[in-house]
Simulated assay, not measured.
Amino acid sequence: MTRTARLLTLLAAVLLLGAVGTVAVLHAADRSGRKDREQAGGPVITPGPVPLAPDGPRRLLFRSTAWGPHRDEITAVPADRPDGPRTASGLRCLRFHAAAGTGICLQGEQEGLGDRYTAVVLDAGLHELKRYPAAGIPTRSRVSPSGHLAAWTVFVSGDSYAGTDFSTRTSIVDTRGWTLYDNLETFTVLDGGKPLKSPDTNIWGVTFADDNGFYATVATGGRTYLVRGDLGARTLTTLHQNVECPSLSPDGTRVAYKKRVAGASPDAPWRLYVLDLATMTETATAEQRNIDDQALWADGRTLVYALAGDYGADLWTVPADGSGSPAVLTRSAVAPAYLG
């Protein structure tokens, strides 16, 4: 091969490699562009005020998990337009709930080689009132209907309720005088009127009835119980077995909860049920997928809960009476609260 031929061959190879590189770059850019367009096609989110005052039109607040600058912020939408434009508060929470002008925001931030978690009580303008250190990963939060009490649960060890290798801590604070019930495990558990003592007791998932009474889950001796709590007496009285993450209906007559069902996968054991507190009758909802959430009552007939989605989680609804079928409420959202 002559020197000229060799140069022409080298030039052709260089041009070919350049063409391949250009195609690869254009393909990657097209994929990136498609991804950006997909994200741009998600919910419209703009910054703005998100008050917790209960007056005005009814609103749905939640932690938005949509990709973008407002990811993990507490956002608000009109209750009758859950898929409408979102107003982003600028406040980031891992778990959140609000009622009657009071909010509870569980936050996490990296500190050294680990993470630090805090429970922040908020006023109606989302301003911090009190901050408490949390002993582990946030998992549940609730505010009482009056706004006077706030509760939160964290994993002290482990990060799932599915197995047995976990430990929780649940706290309640009374915002009227900032009395802190730091660990509900110090309360007396009563079963059949007698104290139930066990070193493996865990408590989680508070839902409030009023400014003294509440319901929660107690796990002990390999069983889970729905308990009625009394802050003044510092007692937890067992009511029904196999109840986790209860949520009290607006009229106080029923509890929505996740129940472990026979034959389900150990990693996905729960289905969504409703318990009538007067008769202790259980009703299975039409949602047959695994539910690892503390459901919320949108009203006296409808439950709201989170399921895994493309961008973290989506909110779904299902009738509480066992009828109907599940339906998407809004995408890329978790930790809901209704106000107004």
Rank of each mutant, 00 (worst) to 15 (best):
N290E: 01
D314S: 12
A13F: 11
M280H: 15
G312E: 09
G163P: 02
D30Y: 05
S157A: 12
D159T: 14
S32E: 13
D191P: 01
D299S: 10
L149Q: 03
S157R: 15
R31Y: 02
F214C: 00
A327F: 09
L106R: 01
L94T: 09
Y181K: 00
G309S: 12
A99S: 11
L8P: 01
D310Y: 05
R131S: 10
L303I: 04
L60K: 12
V14C: 14
R58F: 06
G114P: 03
G48L: 08
A13T: 11
D251E: 10
T102E: 00
E38T: 13
G300E: 14
L10S: 15
N290L: 01
F96P: 08
R131D: 01
E128Y: 02
S265F: 01
Y161K: 02
R59F: 07
S325G: 11
S247Y: 02
P199D: 07
T87P: 06
D174I: 00
N290V: 02
F214A: 03
F187S: 02
E73I: 06
F208M: 07
T22S: 14
F208K: 10
D211Q: 05
T238I: 00
T235H: 04
T65M: 06
A335K: 09
K130N: 07
R6V: 08
V25S: 00
P336D: 08
F96G: 11
R116W: 00
L196F: 03
L329Y: 15
D293E: 11
A284P: 02
R254V: 12
Q241R: 09
G192C: 02
C105M: 03
R260N: 15
D191V: 05
V44I: 13
Y225V: 00
R63K: 15
Y117E: 04
F214T: 01
T22W: 08
H148F: 05
G21F: 10
T139P: 01
P49F: 04
V173G: 03
V261C: 09
H70M: 15
V304R: 07
R176S: 10
M280T: 15
T317P: 11
W270V: 03
V50I: 13
D293C: 13
R116Y: 00
S64R: 01
A134C: 06
E287Y: 00
T279K: 14
G324K: 13
D267L: 07
D182Q: 01
G18N: 14
I74Q: 09
R37E: 09
L15M: 11
Y161Q: 02
T170L: 03
P133C: 04
V227H: 05
L126R: 12
